[in-house]
Design a protein around this nucleic acid. Structure first.
Lengths: 362, 362
DNA sequence: CGCGTTGACAGGCACGTTTCTGCATGGTCG
DNA sequence: CGACCATGCAGAAACGTGCCTGTCAACGCG
């Protein structure tokens, strides 16, 4: 009581500290801390009293002080790949946005918050924020930031299996090879004789695995590969590449596009060449966008289930942070989902594609 | 030297503290701090020596300790509205994703990192992270979180003018009324006689301002309003509402859709009713998506310039945090951009819509 | 030669919390 | 009746920085 009531000369008027609460409640600092955190052995009466006083003073514990003392900040990083100086690529947008949304949600449900950090950025930004762990998206084995994070002993969970021998804590990914093979079989079953691929020039594992799976499938069934590549981060280049693919002398009668905008790009190109979809050209693309449900015709898409991936990644990371030896394996494979629509079926199941209300009828 | 060389019994092996650097360099803690932060008056030789030793030991200053001492964390919050338990609405996705990307970029360029926080969330998450300021998207005057942030004296900058008399530090917004009036005039100039609106049932300012601007325009030109509302966070409801709008006995010959997916929804509905775009129906929607450049026909869109908004919001916030009295006004209006395509022109400028490469010609 | 001045550093406090240790008090049991 | 233990709380040591306040030597100057 002798010093506490002075409440420190330089006390900020807007912020009440734990000392002020202790003084106002007539107890010690320890009792306040224990009462608010449910830690010590206190009678319920004291606990209630302290909580009441803290509420009345509008007391908010300092996050910085708590972090300094406990070593846990409640923050997890979300590292996104960069093209140029923009934080993340435009083409992966629907995927990334969905994934980030799910990750934010999952982190929040367990009391953590998400910090967005580009993989290539000035070092001071990385060291200026206290992270309990990090989610990295499609990390390269060359990435110096990821390497240092791991060296510091921070848990690192990656979306996409890590390139090289990057010793991440855990990773979550789709089975991209199986997904591509499934699509190719689906197209072949719909009557495709020559299936083309619209792929990227980047070296990430998604592009690499998908392309090699396509090439191996071609080899197995004895088809000459027909594909065009373009820098996936450039939306205009996608339209050009789609056009190139359909302009080839060995024009394919079915195309799978690896990136989100490929569906509309291919559809527009087909229209320019007078190709009817699906009669003359079967179409599938990898996308999370719902616009493909309402295009003419609706386009079959492959969903990578970014929400499930974002949730799983965060769960594994927080499990590692909190030291729970999860019974889950440290490598999780999330199944993809092929949403079959008119564009990949030679004989559509119904002539009208289930409009929300039948306009002409009734 | 007497105590420093013991280096504290419980020292973590992986993390070198400032004490270790001081001991290894043979100087005091003060000298290390001054040398690394460029603060005191030290000869360059000492400064270099300390930096060298710090690098050799892999010293990273503790962000928590620095935050506790200086009161600045280098973190700014990004508050997103919630529908249900998901962090942000799906329909604003392209807009939000672009805006968040620009905000992340701008923050990073000035040494700050972004934390994503839902507006409605458990209180402990908010108080568990030390923020220097917050960006809020479309805040309601009822929002308890924003109110408390302001009460704590934190700078708050909002995307969208604040509802009610919310005393935010600054805000950035488009002139939604002018944008709607511009679109309606554009459609009328293209020959529209009865313009319909596809709007939302939510009470946010964007929806409100746009709808009232539409109603006032109708009153001015003497047209009966023709509009349908639906909950904007439900993607399926949009397709149903688009269908309803075109099924009305007073069917409009032009429609403006306030939300991103309305373009494809309206296009699909028009197709079901056998309406040709733009001959029978003129179409404009508000969207940041590039898919509308390649639909059949390409659809005129209104861009709210989310990248400029995200950048401006962060600049204003950091200016307020760092106490720079910016010469910019605290209220910034970002102009919108109408990207005119075939869907809103009765007589398209060219028959072929500039394919990337002429397929049939040459 | 004494004295103010300046450069170059060291000591130590404070930031606000968590938590380990310790000290009373009152009840129980041998 | 004394030893002992559970209960209820207080004191104080950290956590790792930043920065304010010195201290000490060298130096110019009257």
């Amino acid at each position: 009581m002798s010093r506490a009531e002075t409440s420190r000369r330089g006390n900020r008027p807007g912020r009440a500290g734990i000392r002020d609460v202790a003084a106002a409640a007539g107890v010690s600092i320890t009792t306040v801390s224990d009462a608010l955190n449910g830690k010590g052995r206190l009678p319920d009466a004291t606990r209630r009293h302290v909580r009441e006083v803290a509420d009345r003073l509008g007391y908010r514990p300092s996050a910085a002080a708590r972090t300094l003392r406990t070593g846990k900040s409640g923050l997890i990083g979300l590292t996104v790949t960069t093209y140029g100086d923009e934080p993340f690529t435009f083409t992966e947008f629907a995927y990334f946005a969905e994934m980030a949304r799910a990750a934010t949600s999952a982190a929040l449900a367990r009391g953590y918050a998400l910090v967005i950090l580009p993989a290539t950025s000035r070092h001071d930004v990385w060291s200026n924020v206290a992270l309990d762990g990090t989610v990295v998206i499609d990390p390269s084995d060359q990435d110096p930031v990821v390497g240092e994070l791991i060296r510091q002993g921070l848990p690192v969970v990656s979306d996409g299996r890590p390139a090289g021998a990057l010793p991440v804590t855990a990773w979550v990914d789709n089975d991209h090879e199986a997904a591509v093979l499934g699509i190719l079989d689906h197209l072949a079953a719909a009557g495709a004789r020559r299936i083309g691929l619209l792929t990227g020039t980047t070296t990430d594992t998604y592009t690499h695995l998908s392309t090699t799976a396509y090439l191996r499938w071609c080899e197995r069934v004895g088809q000459d590969p027909v594909y065009e590549s373009y820098p996936a981060h450039d939306p205009c280049a996608g339209a050009v590449a789609a056009d190139r693919l359909l302009a080839r002398p060995d024009r394919p009668d079915a195309v799978y596009g690896l990136f989100d905008p490929n569906g509309t790009d291919l559809l527009a190109a087909a229209r320019r060449y007078g190709l009817r979809v699906p009669e003359d050209l079967l179409l599938v693309c990898c996308s999370e966008s719902t616009v493909y449900a309402n295009t003419e015709p609706p386009i079959t898409t492959l969903s990578l289930k970014p929400r499930r991936i974002g949730t799983a990644v965060v769960q594994l990371l927080i499990d590692a942070i909190e030291g729970l030896d999860s019974d889950q394996p440290v490598e999780q494979v999330i199944p993809t989902e092929l949403i079959v629509r008119t564009s990949s079926q030679r004989r559509p199941p119904r002539t009208t594609v289930s409009p929300p209300r039948s306009p002409g009828g009734l």
